[in-house]
Design a protein around this nucleic acid. Sequence first.
DNA 1: CACACGGCTTGCTAGC
DNA 2: GCTAGCAAGCCGTGTG
Lengths: 95, 95, 95, 95
Amino acid sequence: MSADRKNSEPGNPLEDSVAADQLRAFIERIERMEEEKAAVASDIKEIYAEAKGNGFDAKVIRKIVSLRKQDANERKEAMALLSLYAEALGMSIFD
Amino acid sequence: MSADRKNSEPGNPLEDSVAADQLRAFIERIERMEEEKAAVASDIKEIYAEAKGNGFDAKVIRKIVSLRKQDANERKEAMALLSLYAEALGMSIFD
Amino acid sequence: MSADRKNSEPGNPLEDSVAADQLRAFIERIERMEEEKAAVASDIKEIYAEAKGNGFDAKVIRKIVSLRKQDANERKEAMALLSLYAEALGMSIFD
Amino acid sequence: MSADRKNSEPGNPLEDSVAADQLRAFIERIERMEEEKAAVASDIKEIYAEAKGNGFDAKVIRKIVSLRKQDANERKEAMALLSLYAEALGMSIFD
DNA sequence: CACACGGCTTGCTAGC
DNA sequence: GCTAGCAAGCCGTGTG
């Protein structure tokens, strides 16, 4: 088979129509998925809007979601490390 | 009905458990959608990887997709406007 | 006076060379400032690199800087609000 | 000298006050530079505002600046490569 | 005046 | 290890 297409002819990766068709196919698949992604993103926005319409603060919800997303262990490690540095500074990252 | 929850008691939007349940529901819905979104994003990455495995340059495909994403009309308008400015400058945005 | 240039001739904001010169001047000023900004950004990167070379973890320093940047009061407020929500959920943002 | 501080005592990069002072110094230097950066960014915004006040469209100026920012050579290379792909597709990235 | 939108900035991840 | 691309959060703006 054509092996590494890029090396068959320097600077001419698309010498045959097969490659062109293939490329087109890739692009179309990608574009379809990106539409899906955009749709989902839009759904998420709607949920935030709905929450807001029910008296919740979108910013806070966002924060909660983001906190929950972080792996608990990682977060603890990070915190521990930060504390070390902070203590060392006699600092008061937190006041 | 409870109208604007935020105004019923300043700084206490969660005085009843109903609100808590509602909030929890919102968060769960969001988290579900975000999982979906991540899944789709991951699929897209796979397609790029596959394309690369077929000898295509992911960066270029990315560029093509992005160019195609811009609505043609919008792009033309923008171009027309830009040209006006550029000409006026005797400029050479493009050299 | 020239009032709102945009309305004097629809779609032709650059009918005279004065405007062109003005535009060019704006662009050059912006570009000069952006160079400065890039230079400063680069300096910052260097400092992080230097810190790293002295055994510090750039990520942690970044975090500290960012924490310190937030106004202390604001941070406390945010925390208080978050706690409210979290408690209301009987949640466990932190486990 | 202390070589790689991180390895001298696992998880304790700040065992001595020297390190703490050093860290503090790094942080202060960074914070000073970030102030500068913010100042410059603010200046840039002002210029855009001024341009707008003179009848120019900030969005367009932004676009021009951004176009000019791309190194001409890079842009040409990218274009050449893109054209290759585009032609191969009988495509019209640009219609 | 609130809300939605877009741009900017930042932090993260993956690829070279 | 570094840079570039990606995603998230923040903020200012335009609009109803």
